[in-house]
């Protein structure tokens, strides 16, 4: 873990944020604004937001938006951009050094930088905009990612600022971090949305690239000290058996989590891999059937803990 420490910054004036989305209604109670942190220690095979993994701004290219003006091809110092047979602009990722000169030249929106260094005041300014909606709905701000704990100093600074504004906060985390860090974060967060992928350590490592022991210990610690909702991405072929989900539900109940949310796998991440030049997962994952989701919900319910579908 250890990766977390690499990004400790001397002056955490800014954090890398890749989206601030308003009217989020699946990320905690009420109407919320979700702040998406960039950078993640896990490499889940099903990742829906591959553009959130790296802790740095990244070029994203959407050829369908390209107007074929060619300005980007001319401006690229490394000649990474070229025309394909249709005249649409493509990129050789091996040549791209992420200088982003092309983005400034693009008027179509086909080239875009994902991730931006933002200061706390700017984030506060954004999340303040929907304060009335939070008040009327019992909502607030959710911090998600990527993995927010991957930028710990900035996260703490942001949480403190949100507390000062009287905002309800939820932290959506994969839980992969040092326990010391969680003890600092815990008192600053109103609700944890804690992701659990699998209780089996081997499977977890195989599909996420990381060990789950510290995750489960952290979850136990968090649930003992704060409101906690356990969130489970339901991935066919990985954790979609009633036994696997049921085991997670048992664990959640045992440690005192309030509820379990089942989040069915979706294919939203697939196209993005090519758009940022990362390798897509070679596994084919099916989208779970609604009927299968219903029976998984029932499996959780029989274990004596509240269950919700999608948030």
């Amino acid at each position: 873990m250890k990766q977390g420490q690499q990004v400790h910054q001397d002056t955490p004036a800014t954090g890398f944020i890749y989206n601030i989305q308003r009217f989020c209604i699946h990320d905690g109670p009420g109407i919320r604004t979700t702040v998406f942190f960039k950078g993640c220690p896990l490499r889940c095979a099903w990742c829906a937001n591959p553009e959130s993994r790296e802790l740095k701004p990244q070029l994203m290219i959407r050829p369908t938006r390209c107007m074929r003006c060619g300005r980007c091809v001319d401006i690229c110092p490394n000649h990474a951009l070229y025309y394909d047979q249709d005249g649409t602009v493509r990129i050789r990722w091996s040549l791209c050094d992420q200088c982003h000169a092309c983005v400034g030249a693009c008027t179509s929106g086909a080239l875009e930088v994902i991730g931006e260094a933002m200061g706390v005041p700017r984030i506060i300014h954004e999340v303040e905009k929907d304060r009335l909606f939070y008040r009327n709905s019992g909502g607030g701000v959710t911090i998600s990612g990527g993995e927010p704990l991957f930028q710990p100093d900035f996260l703490l600074e942001l949480l403190a600022a949100l507390r000062l504004q009287g905002m309800h906060t939820a932290l959506d985390t994969c839980g992969y971090c040092e326990a010391d860090l969680l003890s600092l974060v815990l008192p600053e967060v109103d609700l944890f949305l804690f992701d659990v992928k699998h209780l089996d350590a081997c499977k977890h490592r195989e599909f996420t690239g990381a060990d789950n022991r510290c995750i489960l210990e952290n979850l136990r610690y968090v649930a003992a000290g704060a409101r906690t909702w356990v969130r489970v991405p339901v991935i066919p072929g990985f954790n979609d058996s009633p036994e696997d989900i049921g085991a997670i539900a048992d664990f959640a109940r045992e440690i005192g989590a309030e509820k379990v949310s089942l989040l069915p796998y979706h294919e939203g991440g697939l196209a993005k891999h090519a758009q940022i030049g990362s390798a897509a997962c070679s596994l084919h994952i099916d989208v779970p059937e609604e009927s299968a989701m219903s029976s998984l919900c029932a499996a959780v319910e029989t274990r004596g803990i509240t269950v919700t579908l999608r948030g």
Binding site: I25, G30, I31, L132, F133, N136, S137, G138, G139, T308
Partner: peptide, 17 residues
């Protein structure tokens, strides 16, 4: 179920605004 309350809050906020 579960989302409707948020819609009501949205509507009340429309009123407040």
């Amino acid at each position: 179920q579960g989302m409707r309350d948020r819609f009501l809050a949205y509507l009340r906020t429309w009123g407040d605004l």
